[in-house]
Simulated assay, not measured.
Amino acid sequence: MKAVAEAVHVLNHDSQSCNRVAANQWLVQFQQTNAAWEVATSILTSSHSSSSSSSYLLDFELQFFAAQILKRKIQNEGYNLHYDSKEALLNALLLAAKKFSLGPSQILTQICLALSALIIRAVEHKQPIEKLFSSLHNLQNQDNGDVAVLEMLTVLPEEVETQNSDCNISSTLRYHYGQELLSHTPTVLCFLLHHSEQKIDDDMQLQSRNRKILRCLLSWVRAGCFSEIPPLSIPTHPLLSLVFNSLQVSSSFDLAIEVLIELVTRYEGLPQVLLYRVQFLKELLLLPALSRGDEIVIGGVASLLSEIGQAAPALIVEASTEALMLAEALLSCVAFPSEDWEIADSTLQFWYVSFLKLFLRFFTFIIIICKQWFLLVFFSC
């Protein structure tokens, strides 16, 4: 362990490039050894802690490196581990997740990625994700364990998605993992809702907590967590209140927009419901952003409105009050004097789809008129 710590220190802090190169080569070779499993695990589960800032930095670098080692080795060699080794590693990673639940967050994320990778490769378990959720339930009941659980729930759907490119996993097993994951949707949504309702007096902590919840929700939306819920009932889901409220907070605006865009593009019928929220988006977000020149908010609202319009072009050509308001809002976004064309570019597909839909409707109307005229002339003769 001492040799690894020294090599990491040289790699990150030595002034001589030749020393840094040598340290990097040594660490790369070390990662490929069997000893790396035990050393990395020991680094992450050790109870040692430093009080000085310099020692804290060195510990962070070493612990982050150890977490990355385990993640990579699991991804590359996880299938070859024996059952007992996997069980021991699972318990060690859960212990490490508990240890780093209050930070540093970068290390916790790497540990959770390693845990997710390990579970996906635990093919000897008929329901590996079920086993993980059982472990997470125990972790949640410990002090600050819910923080680690939240991060774990965030990266797990992403890991399940990335395993689609793993040639070691059959398509049948991939489908099984996806279905097993989604079977826990009610539990996850309840956990997120409960977490969002906890009172926090400190504004910074509250914003940080809400961002983490939105990140987790985004991962599960991308995994298809609302696929079994009727689209018309999605906007009334309690978590959507958090999403809409987060639109009005600068620190969480981007994630809230991403969640809504994912929902719009994935669930048919939802754009029609969100079309009635255009006035809210315009008055509470877009108009104030235009007045203060906030390109981030303008661009985000433009992207969302454009996706709503593209997902429901038939509603747009009906020229309802909401549809006209959406088009007007998008024109306001396009007219905003931005240094680049990113905002305008994000709306191009909307205008193209809308024009195409209008053209087809007009063309159909012309055909009907011509047909009626032809029949009238024919029978007149």
Rank of each mutant, 00 (worst) to 15 (best):
M152D: 13
D345W: 02
N210Y: 10
H48Q: 15
I69E: 02
S346F: 04
V4H: 04
S17C: 01
L150C: 11
M1S: 10
I308P: 08
A122W: 05
A327G: 07
H176C: 02
C216N: 09
Q75I: 05
A302I: 10
C381G: 11
Q31D: 12
E158H: 02
L136V: 06
T162L: 12
E197I: 09
L255R: 12
F378M: 06
L11V: 04
A36R: 02
Q127P: 00
H48W: 12
E197Q: 15
D201F: 07
S233C: 04
S196K: 11
A323L: 11
L284W: 00
S250C: 00
E197W: 04
S241Y: 14
I257N: 09
V377Y: 08
T41F: 07
Q127V: 05
I316T: 14
E268D: 14
S55Y: 07
L153K: 07
I343S: 10
V264Y: 08
I367E: 14
Q31P: 03
T109W: 01
E180W: 03
N144E: 09
S101Y: 12
V147S: 06
E268M: 00
F133E: 00
R222D: 13
N80W: 08
H13F: 12
G309S: 10
D14M: 05
N24L: 00
Q32R: 10
I366F: 14
A96W: 08
L255F: 13
E283W: 09
F64I: 05
E268T: 01
Q16T: 12
S170Y: 09
I367D: 01
F280D: 08
V353F: 01
K2L: 11
R266E: 03
P104M: 09
L304D: 10
V264R: 06
S250M: 08
L232N: 13
C190S: 15
S134M: 05
S233K: 08
N210M: 14
S380M: 10
Q32M: 08
N91T: 04
E283P: 00
W373R: 08
A22W: 00
L240T: 11
T364G: 10
F244E: 01
M325H: 08
F65D: 03
R211S: 15
P313K: 06
F64L: 14
A7C: 04
L181T: 06
S346I: 02
L287C: 11
T347P: 04
L118S: 01
I316K: 07
F30H: 04
L263T: 09
E339N: 07
Q110D: 02
L240V: 06
L193A: 10
V21A: 11
I257H: 13
H176W: 01
V10Q: 09
R215Q: 15
S227V: 04
H176R: 13
T172S: 15
F363M: 09
S338R: 04
L330Y: 04
K2Q: 12
L214Q: 13
Q372A: 04
L173K: 14
Q25D: 14
S42H: 06
F100S: 02
L305E: 03
Q205M: 11
L81E: 03
T154S: 06
L192F: 13
A323Q: 08
E258R: 09
Y79M: 08
L62F: 03
V264S: 12
Q106T: 07
K282V: 05
A148H: 08
E318T: 09
S134C: 06
Q127L: 00
P104S: 02
L376I: 09
S250Y: 06
I43C: 13
F359I: 06
F350N: 02
C216F: 09
Q68C: 02
P157R: 05
